[in-house]
């Protein structure tokens, strides 16, 4: 309690601004750090976040460090309870789920944090089976783009080579779980945008996997349709539209023409994923 009181008195805080890497950024009540950053044109790397969908906070790519003049560390934060060298002055949070609070001093684009993000991206690569040159999504894949952005040159860790299913039962959409990164964008898009409930995550730990909500468990028996947001929102090549391979040539794909860090790229990414005859 006393530490909290001390912190609030040390410095005056501009109302409704947070500070990211030294830059003051305004926010509205109810916005997360990610919302405020994106609105101000500041890129915080992310994969499971998409403006308009309920923030999820699972990929942890948007991890940032917060120090603050008006915040104390929660007593229930177990990181503070062990004696190992953890810098408890700087709390680690997910930018996409943490509310912006006036006075937050946030580190985002630092070499140390980008190194952490690179390691997390490597984890996502090696837990699945990502063979970029053979994937239809290459060049349009946000995972691949983030990896380039972070300077990732290899998977670093030994590959897990999991055995995962392909579901080609649906007439127009196919599911290749080799590439699924469990971001749950399709799960949320189906529920929140399409008004359906086609996807879910089952299992636990390293065996967690995407399942389809249908009596047979197959995509063909679900009410998924080609025009659903859930079909197009996949950041990797786990959900693909059949019979429309390589219509945009390599070299002219989204991330051949754009940086993943460009703000407001979502419509471009979605547009590239849609096909001309839809």
């Amino acid at each position: 309690m006393s530490a909290e009181a001390n912190m609030t008195t040390t410095n005056t805080v501009t109302p409704n601004t947070i500070n990211i890497d030294g830059q003051d950024i305004p926010f509205k009540n109810g916005q997360t750090i990610m919302d405020a950053a994106l609105a101000a044109g500041v890129y915080i790397p992310h994969l499971c976040h998409k403006p308009g969908l309920t923030p999820h906070g699972s990929c942890k790519l948007c991890t940032v460090d917060i120090g603050s003049r008006s915040m104390s560390t929660s007593a229930s934060d177990r990181r503070t309870q062990t004696k190992f060298s953890v810098d408890i002055d700087r709390r680690s949070v997910s930018a996409c789920t943490t509310p912006a609070v006036a006075g937050q001093q946030i580190s985002n684009d630092t070499p140390a944090l980008n190194e952490v993000r690179k390691t997390i991206t490597q984890m996502l690569f090696i837990e699945g089976n990502h063979l970029c040159p053979a994937c239809e999504k290459t060049g349009n894949c946000t995972l691949q783009a983030v990896a380039y952005h972070l300077g990732m040159l290899d998977g670093h860790f030994p590959q897990f080579f999991p055995r995962r299913e392909v579901d080609a039962s649906h007439p127009t959409v196919m599911l290749d779980l080799d590439r699924c990164i469990l971001c749950e964008l399709c799960v949320r898009a189906s529920r929140e945008v399409d008004g359906k409930n086609v996807f879910a995550i089952a299992g636990r730990g390293i065996n967690a996997h995407l399942i389809v909500n249908s009596p047979s468990g197959k995509l063909v028996d679900s009410d998924l349709e080609t025009g659903d947001m859930a079909v197009h929102i996949c950041p990797v090549g786990a959900i693909l539209i059949k019979e429309h391979g390589y219509e945009v040539p390599i070299g002219r794909r989204t991330f051949d023409l754009h940086q993943v860090g460009e703000i407001g790229l979502e419509p471009v990414i979605l547009a590239k994923a849609r096909h001309t005859n839809e």
Binding site: G57, S58, C59, K60, L61, I120, M123, L124, I126, E127, F157, P158, F160, L182, I201, G203, R204, G205, I206, N207, A208
Partner: peptide, 21 residues
């Protein structure tokens, strides 16, 4: 820990298995 990780977030899901290995 690798057995009990729920699998929600990347660091724990993949990291606990990396440590185990």
């Amino acid at each position: 820990f690798a057995h009990e990780s729920c699998g929600f977030c990347t660091p724990c899901r993949v990291g606990t298995t990396l440590l185990k290995n």
